Amino acid sequence: MNVLAIVLEALLGLAFVMAGIMKIAGVQMHVDNFNRWKLPQWFRPITGIVELAGGAAMLAGIWVKGLPALAGILLGITMLVGVLVHVRIRDTAKNTVPAVVLLILAVVVLLIQGPDLDQLFG
């Protein structure tokens, strides 16, 4: 397996697991962010569950072929929506760049591991 892919999967997996847990737990920073983004609070734990599931799949994908590509799709879509939310409210670059970086990293994992998707569905 590609060492770069393993490192990216571990970093992304841990980042999204942590972010998901914090959203589900209702950490004040995330509550404030959802208010600033003009998103309903009921959407915060749903986002957290998606991030937690995607992060866990990314971590499990270190051992299960195809799973990182699937997680890359899920997390890539999640981060694309996140970037669009930042753009919609005309957020600062400082606040938008982390979402863009996570989107790019999810796409990189998808591109590296994409050929293994058939092992999940084939």
Results as ranks from 00 to 15, higher is better:
Gly114Lys: 00
Val81Leu: 07
Gly48Glu: 02
Leu103Ala: 10
Val101Gln: 08
Leu74Pro: 05
Gly55Thr: 08
Val100Lys: 05
Leu102Arg: 03
Leu111Lys: 01
Val109Thr: 12
Lys94Val: 10
Val7Asn: 06
Thr47Val: 09
Val83Tyr: 09
Met18Pro: 01
Val27Gln: 14
Gly76Val: 04
Glu9Ala: 13
Ala60Asn: 00
Leu52Lys: 03
Pro45Ser: 11
Leu8Phe: 06
Glu51Ser: 07
His86Tyr: 02
Gly114Phe: 07
Val97Gly: 01
Leu8Met: 11
Gly20Lys: 01
Gly76Met: 09
Asp118Lys: 13
Val31Gly: 01
Ala53Met: 15
Pro45Val: 02
Gln113Leu: 01
Pro68Trp: 09
Ala53Tyr: 01
Ala19Leu: 07
Asn2Gly: 02
Leu74Asp: 01
Val85Ser: 10
Glu9His: 02
Leu103Asn: 08
Met79Gly: 11
Met29His: 13
Val50Asn: 05
Met22Ile: 01
Val83Asn: 07
Val87Cys: 11
Ala57Lys: 03
Leu52Arg: 02
Lys38Asp: 11
Ala53Glu: 02
Leu12Arg: 00
Gly61Tyr: 11
Asn2Tyr: 05
Leu8Gly: 02
Asp91Ala: 08
Ile112Pro: 01
Val100Trp: 11
Ile49Asn: 01
Val17Ser: 10
Val31Met: 06
Val7Gln: 05
Val87Arg: 14
Gln28Glu: 15
Ile73Ala: 13
Leu111Gly: 06
Leu8Pro: 04
Pro45Trp: 10
Gly114Val: 03
Phe43Pro: 08
Asp116Ile: 00
Leu52Asn: 00
Leu4Lys: 07
Pro115Gln: 12
Arg90Leu: 05
Val87Lys: 15
Val7Ser: 11
Val17Leu: 12
Ile73Val: 15
